[in-house]
Write a protein that binds this DNA or RNA. Sequence first.
DNA 1: TAGATCGTTGGTGTAGGACAAACCATTGAT
DNA 2: ATCAATGGTTTGTCCTACACCAACGATCTA
Lengths: 156, 156
Amino acid sequence: MTSLPVVNQPPHRCGALVDHLARRLRLRSESVLAPLGLRPRHLIPLTVLRDRGGSSQQDLAKILEMDSTNVVTLLNELETENLIARRRSPEDRRRHLVELTDVGAKLLARAEFALTAVEDEVFSGLSDEQRETLYELLQQATRKTGVEACRETPPC
Amino acid sequence: MTSLPVVNQPPHRCGALVDHLARRLRLRSESVLAPLGLRPRHLIPLTVLRDRGGSSQQDLAKILEMDSTNVVTLLNELETENLIARRRSPEDRRRHLVELTDVGAKLLARAEFALTAVEDEVFSGLSDEQRETLYELLQQATRKTGVEACRETPPC
DNA sequence: TAGATCGTTGGTGTAGGACAAACCATTGAT
DNA sequence: ATCAATGGTTTGTCCTACACCAACGATCTA
């Protein structure tokens, strides 16, 4: 037999499922977030910043895996709304340290609250417990990202 | 205090995390799938069709939550590669029943295999067990979608 | 026969985002 | 002091995914 070693348990790729869910969430989120002046893409950096308590701008770009020029414009939007603040790093004044403002933290909380219905709908197939588990797994998977990005840039 | 009733356990919104992970997965998947002539967006309908064992075209549009005209072009791409087949419904000849071909099923399997490294990297923060749990939760959450779409259209 | 429905085609518009070039301020090495 | 390298910014180009509209053929249902 030229048998490729057919794996016992099929590998279970999550990619398509994640993509699918992301789309479903994004679609619904848009209309919910619009009144708050936010778009779905804004929530990602806001959440990351809350989780990490601030970050250099290029670290942020690495974490978001986004081109740094696009990060700039994204942050510009958030800064003009006073949701994040950039301040120069004392050690290296070329760097911008980005952090969530109080306004930003509050708006993020409001946004999350507003999204309750959305997530209830999209995750209606899951029990509360399961949703909590899901959240923790996602959190853990993404948190790893931060660590990774940190390894490459000592100063964080 | 004009205290808003601050929720005991914070609500734990998954949206941003899912978005973030989706992006990370998509970026890496592109280059991996390219040699197979696939793009990340193709995997979603292919996976859905495998899971459901076929679907009317408009049910598919509902499940994917995509505009039906765009679903047409997406399916066209898949059909020219012979990955899916459209055949007329016997009961209502206006309808197209879409299903995965053998070729499509095999390519999907190959694609998933090729994505092993990608998911290993992105989910490196999770143990095998946790990844399996995650997969099941995602599966369950998305499966619900199918049910939902079915409720609206009796003939499925 | 008339109206509605499923899919199809073609067209328009917009947002997200990759990528490149040029720039300033700052740092660090020589 | 000088000069290259780095972090961030601006601008501008390009592409893809997608929503949306209009019109059409085939088919079903009343």
